[in-house]
């Protein structure tokens, strides 16, 4: 694999790496393919990780505090203690993800050394760098990153992210921003798809996206990596809503273990993500789950306290 650290070469590297016969990229993106149609759950203890695995989660996100607690507690949110992450890795057989702060490439190096299967360079933690995200090509460990629109998604992919998720507004239990971001990415893809080829460079400039990746989206009509929803999913219906809008799977952060009955809620969200298109089944699945997580209306959060505006 290319080891150049010349940032301008990012899109070129994506082009090289994504050739069918070059392994690293396909192997990284391939794990995300395997997660499709699945639910990735935030967990803070090995016991919660077991509950998630038993409920049918395809992966768990190991962290010290779920986003709603991070929001409540304030202060600087950092990478979790390696003991906690290793404890969760040992507790389950499914892939384990963990979060590094935006731009904190040493936290990422530590996560890779721990054997973490996917790194989330996440706006939920306090950013370590206000200008630069991690050069994700430098790792064997694949990355998932948040995005609000096509420009942000393609910038992260240009840096080497092998999976994208909507940012939503984490820790609120309010789905509105995840919906907005999922729809925005799709609207942008339609714009690119319908544009004549001579307009693609201008679109790339306007989106702030690598030209090669804009051309790729124009050719295929989709993001070059798997796209999940995250940020505010609290019920089976929320998960099915995002799946019907067109994402390929969901992250549930605070929504499981801040609900009345986590095992039941986890199980129900897994079922709903598989049968997202079947209202009769969704009606059954949604019965008697107890209270969902207590939410915060996202529009009441002042802009300087939003998590989604972290990163660029």
């Amino acid at each position: 694999m290319a080891t150049s650290t010349n940032g301008a070469a990012g899109a070129q590297r994506w082009k090289e790496m994504s050739k069918p016969e070059v392994g690293d990229w396909r192997v990284k993106g391939g794990l995300a393919q395997m997660l499709k149609g699945g639910v990735i759950m935030d967990v803070v203890t090995p016991d919660q990780a077991k509950v998630a695995e038993d409920a049918g989660a395809v992966s768990v996100m190991a962290l010290e505090r779920v986003p709603s607690d991070i929001r409540r507690d304030g202060g600087v949110a950092r990478m979790s203690d390696p003991d906690l992450i290793s404890g969760i890795i040992d507790a389950v057989s499914i892939p384990v993800m963990a979060k590094a702060r935006i731009g904190h490439f040493v936290e990422a190096q530590i996560l890779e050394a721990l054997g973490v299967d996917y790194c989330d360079e996440s706006e939920v933690l306090t950013p370590a760098d206000n200008a630069y995200h991690i050069d994700k090509w430098q790792y064997k460990m694949p990355y998932v990153c948040g995005a609000r629109n096509i420009g942000e998604a393609l910038r992260r992919i240009g840096e080497g992210a092998a999976m994208i998720r909507t940012k939503g507004e984490a820790g609120t239990g309010d789905i509105v921003h995840a919906v907005t971001h999922a729809r925005q990415i799709q609207a942008d893809i339609r714009t690119i798809e319908n544009a004549p080829s001579e307009e693609l460079m201008t679109l790339a400039r306007d989106y702030g996206a690598p030209y090669e990746l804009v051309v790729e989206v124009a050719r295929t009509g989709k993001l070059p990596v798997v796209n999940f929803a995250a940020g505010g999913i609290a019920t089976p219906a929320d998960a099915a809503l995002l799946m019907q809008i067109g994402v390929e799977g969901v992250f549930v952060g605070s929504g499981i273990f801040k609900s009345d009955n986590p095992a039941k809620m986890a199980d129900a969200i897994v079922r709903a993500t598989t049968h997202f298109n079947d209202p009769d089944m969704l009606a059954e699945i949604s019965r008697g789950l107890g209270d969902a997580m207590p939410g915060i209306e996202a529009s009441k959060i002042p802009e300087d306290q939003q998590l989604q505006t972290r990163g660029w």
């Binding site: 997660l35 499709k36 049918g56 395809v58 992966s59 057989s93 499914i94 897994v270």
Partner: peptide
Amino acid sequence: GESTTIVK
């Protein structure tokens, strides 16, 4: 996919 999930 995830075998634990699919079996479940």
